[in-house]
Simulated scan of single mutants.
Amino acid sequence: MTQLQFSLNMEKLKDSVMNSNIDAVVKSTIVLILNEYMEKERDEYLQAGAYERSEIRQDYRNGYYDRDYMMSIGKMKLRVPRTRSGEFSPSVFEKYKRVDQAFTLGMLEMVVNGVSTRKVKNIVQELCGEEVSKSFVSSLTAKLDPIVREWAERPLNTIYCPYVFVDAMYIKVREHHKVVSKAVYIATAINEENKREVLGLKVDHQESFEAWASFLKSMIDRGLQSPKLVISDAHEGLKKAIQKTFIGTAWQRCTVHFKRNLVDKMPKKGMKEMVVDIRRIFEAVTVEDARKFKEAFLSKYENNTKLDKVRERLDEGFEDSIQYLNEPTKYHPFIHSTNHLERLNEEMRRRERVIRIFPNNQSAFRLLGAHLMEYAESKQQQKALLKK
C-alpha cells in the first residue's frame, strides 16, 4: 500500500482548539487530516505537484467540491479535490465505505428485529448527533425489497419436502385511506433430511379457497413437488385448495387444534377424565391403536348426552387427524400439528406489533419476508453445525 507523507496547517488546527468545544476540535482535526490526505492522493495520481511541469503527468487539477460525510462522531464537510477527466476518486470514501455499509445494515437489522422507524431515527441521532427522518429510514429498508423478493421466488425443485405445513396470520394494512385486515400466508416444510425449510410467503386478502389455491399453485410453479402430507388447521377453503392443488397428497388435521375443539365442547364436570381419554387416542403409535382408543371413548361415553357433540366431532374428524400415523415413527413428533409454524407466527407477531399498521402490502411483505429469511438462515447454520 502506498504511504503518503503530508503536513497539517497547524494554524488552522490551533484556531480550532482555542475557539471550539472538544467535539468541534475532534471534527476539525479529522477534516484537516482527510482534506490533506486527499490532496496528496491527487498529487500522486497526477504524478505532478501544483504548477509542476512533468513528462509523466496523468491529468490536470480541476478545483474542489464540497461533500458531506457521516461518521460516528457526526456529519462533517470535506473539500474533495477533482481532476479534469473526472477519473480520480479519493480512497477516503472507499476506505470508510464499509463503515457506512455496516451502519446501514445495522439500521436494517433493527427494523427487521421489530424496532420502529421512529426509534431507529432516535438511535441514529443519539449515535451520530444528526437527525434523520423516518422516511429516510423507510427508504433504507426498501433496499431489502429485491433481496426478499429474490428469496421468496427462489426455485423449490432442488429439494423434496414430504411434509408441508401451511397457516395464516392477520395484520393491519392501510389501503385506499382505510385500515384493512390482510392475511399473511406462510408455508414451511420438513425435507428428506428431517430439516425445516421455509417455502413461501404471501400477503393477500382474507382466507378463501381462491387465495389459498393461488398461494399453493405459486409454490408448484416454483418447482415444489406434491408432498406426502400437508398439515394445517381445518379451514374449509384451505382444505379444498389442498385437495384441488396436490393430487394424491393426504391432509393431516392439526391434532392440537382438533383436541382443543373437542375439549371446548366438554362439560366442566368430569372433564379431567375425559381429557385423559382424548389424549390417549392421539398418543397412540399406530393407526390400529388410535382407532381402538377412539372406539373405547365412544363406547364409554355413549350414554352421556352432554357429550353428543364431542362424540360427533371426534367421529367426523378422526381419520383426518391420524394421517401422520401412516408415516415413519421418527416423524410423528414433528408432523402431527402446526405448532412449530404457530411459534414462528408468534415471533413474527411480536415484531409486527411494533409497527401495528403497515403503510402498504409491500412494506408488510418486506419486513415479514426478511424475518423469515433470517429464520431460514439460522436453520441452515444449525444444520451446518450438526454436520461438523
Rank of each mutant, 00 (worst) to 15 (best):
V166F: 08
K27H: 13
L13M: 15
Q323P: 03
V179S: 04
S208Q: 06
V120F: 02
L216S: 07
K172L: 04
D233K: 12
T188P: 02
A290P: 02
Q58D: 02
I159W: 09
S20K: 14
R222M: 11
A211N: 12
V26H: 13
D100F: 01
H340C: 03
R260M: 02
K119Q: 13
S232H: 07
E87C: 00
E39I: 05
M271D: 05
H332S: 06
V230I: 12
E39V: 06
Y64E: 04
K95I: 08
A187V: 04
A24E: 15
V256C: 07
H371M: 15
S208P: 04
Q206R: 11
S135G: 06
I231V: 15
I335V: 02
A234F: 10
A189L: 04
N191H: 12
R98L: 07
G114R: 15
G74N: 13
K272T: 09
K77V: 13
I171R: 15
K239M: 13
A296G: 02
I123Y: 08
N345L: 09
N62F: 08
E131D: 08
T104K: 14
F215E: 03
V124H: 09
L201I: 12
A24R: 14
R149V: 01
R351V: 03
I220F: 04
F6Y: 14
E55S: 14
A241M: 08
E312A: 13
E11N: 15
T2I: 04
V256M: 10
S214D: 14
K27C: 14
G248W: 13
V285P: 01
M107F: 01
K300R: 10
G223S: 09
L385M: 07
M71C: 15
F215A: 10
G237P: 04
L385N: 01
A168Y: 03
L156F: 10
I281N: 05
F165P: 02
A284V: 03
S28C: 13
R42G: 00
A211K: 10
E175Q: 15
N326M: 11
S85P: 01
S214P: 00
G237A: 08
R149H: 10
K182E: 00
N326A: 13
G200M: 08
E44G: 01
R260H: 08
M38D: 05
S28D: 15
S16L: 14
K143P: 00
L4W: 04
A290S: 11
R349I: 02
Q125E: 15
G317Y: 10
Q206G: 08
A376E: 15
F282E: 09
K244W: 03
E312I: 03
D289Y: 00
G74A: 15
R313S: 14
Q252I: 07
S232N: 09
K119C: 05
Q58R: 14
M266A: 12
K172A: 05
I56V: 14
S139V: 00
Y163D: 02
L224A: 09
F136L: 11
K309F: 03
Q3Y: 04
R82Q: 12
R350I: 04
V276M: 11
M70Y: 05
N35K: 06
N303T: 07
S208A: 10
A364G: 05
L314G: 07
R61F: 09
E153H: 13
Y37P: 03
S72I: 15
S89E: 01
D43T: 05
V184D: 04
